[in-house]
Amino acid sequence: MLKPAQTTANTEANAVFRGAAMPWFFLLPSLLILAVFIYLPALQTLRLAAFKANLILGTERFVGLQNVTELLLSPAYRQVALQTLIFMVLTVTLGLLFSLGLAWLASRPIRGSKYYRLLLIYPYALSPAIAGTLWLFMFNPEIGVVNQLLGSLFSIKPRWLDDPILAFGLVVVAAIWKGLAYNIVFYLASIQNLPGDVMEAAEIDGATPAQVFWRVAFPLLTPITFFLVFTNIISALFDSFALTDILTRGGPYFHNAGITTFLVYQLYQDGFVNFKSGVAAAQAALMLVLVAFITFMQFKVGERRVHYGG
């Protein structure tokens, strides 16, 4: 006679689709949506990268890898790529450090902690366009509240949007601020699930608060940090468009290109302003290669430092 556990196991083993076509029938709606909105456009983009094309005029001329070669040899595009990498490193590194610090402070048992956490998470509810508009109003050289305050206290009114260094720094700070809430949500949830007995044992052994954080808590937070590094890299590469477009429109001009013109904004300019569809498609292909390389290196190098122990 079968035991209850064996009966359940046999029932689950028999709970399969009767026909080979039935699983594909249930998957068909999802596969159709993915094909129409992701796979086919991606293939079309890769095909278009090999053409000198203008979608407005409807002209195409096969050029092979010429679009990619011209981009890699272009001083303006190399500057844009370097600016993007600097922007990515600054926003990811500083953003995660600030997020971790704020999440650690917000997790402390203090009065009103729920309200502090709500205020920290609130910016996540804002779209990048709204966030960019807020920063534009705050740092407007003439009527912005920041310049009004600096003018009354120090008699200075920096030209935030006209100076290349100030404009670049402003976009970096705005991007970090916009991403703080997303990172804090994950860090705060992870910190609240840290094993309390391990933390208490470290404190009993005489560890200082800083040692408890860096030697005990932080290694246990490396899995979520590994995840957030990847999501923040993707955000820096693609979600910077709205902030850049609203705050600076890619400017001010510096050497060969706008100082805040990043890869995704350059793609938009070539594809939808200058109507260089083939060049824009080649840029999309290069960004795909860049993301794949970063992902590979992250899993190749970064995962070794991730501690999955409980």
Results as ranks from 00 to 15, higher is better:
residue 198 V to M: 13
residue 189 A to R: 12
residue 118 L to C: 07
residue 288 L to W: 01
residue 262 F to E: 07
residue 45 T to K: 07
residue 280 A to P: 02
residue 157 K to P: 00
residue 84 T to Q: 04
residue 16 V to G: 07
residue 146 V to A: 10
residue 294 I to W: 06
residue 241 F to I: 07
residue 278 G to H: 06
residue 176 I to F: 03
residue 34 L to D: 00
residue 305 R to T: 01
residue 88 M to P: 00
residue 219 P to H: 10
residue 38 I to L: 09
residue 196 G to H: 03
residue 201 A to Q: 09
residue 125 A to N: 10
residue 172 V to R: 04
residue 52 K to T: 11
residue 75 P to H: 07
residue 192 Q to G: 14
residue 136 L to H: 12
residue 254 F to D: 13
residue 172 V to Q: 09
residue 275 F to Q: 04
residue 81 A to R: 02
residue 309 G to W: 05
residue 214 W to D: 06
residue 27 L to N: 10
residue 127 S to M: 11
residue 16 V to M: 09
residue 135 W to A: 10
residue 194 L to D: 08
residue 150 L to M: 15
residue 275 F to L: 08
residue 167 A to D: 03
residue 104 W to D: 10
residue 74 S to T: 10
residue 5 A to Y: 02
residue 146 V to H: 06
residue 29 P to M: 06
residue 272 F to L: 15
residue 131 A to M: 14
residue 170 L to K: 11
residue 234 I to Y: 00
residue 75 P to N: 14
residue 165 I to C: 00
residue 47 R to I: 05
residue 95 G to W: 08
residue 38 I to P: 00
residue 117 R to G: 08
residue 112 G to F: 08
residue 127 S to D: 09
residue 245 D to T: 13
residue 55 L to S: 11
residue 206 G to R: 11
residue 153 L to H: 00
residue 206 G to W: 05
residue 120 L to D: 02
residue 86 I to W: 12
residue 30 S to D: 00
residue 114 K to L: 04
residue 87 F to R: 06
residue 267 L to Y: 10
residue 90 L to T: 10
residue 57 L to P: 01
residue 137 F to G: 14
residue 228 L to H: 06
residue 197 D to P: 01
residue 310 G to S: 09
residue 100 L to M: 13
residue 75 P to T: 12
residue 148 Q to S: 06
residue 112 G to I: 13
residue 161 L to K: 06
residue 288 L to G: 10
residue 175 A to D: 12
residue 19 G to T: 15
residue 80 V to E: 07
residue 135 W to G: 08
residue 273 V to P: 02
residue 298 Q to W: 11
residue 13 A to D: 05
residue 293 F to S: 15
residue 21 A to M: 06
residue 21 A to C: 02
residue 305 R to N: 05
residue 23 P to Y: 04
residue 86 I to F: 11
residue 249 R to E: 03
residue 129 A to M: 14
residue 41 P to K: 14
residue 179 G to H: 06
residue 166 L to K: 14
residue 279 V to N: 02
residue 42 A to P: 00
residue 70 E to R: 12
residue 199 M to H: 04
residue 223 P to A: 03
residue 63 V to D: 04
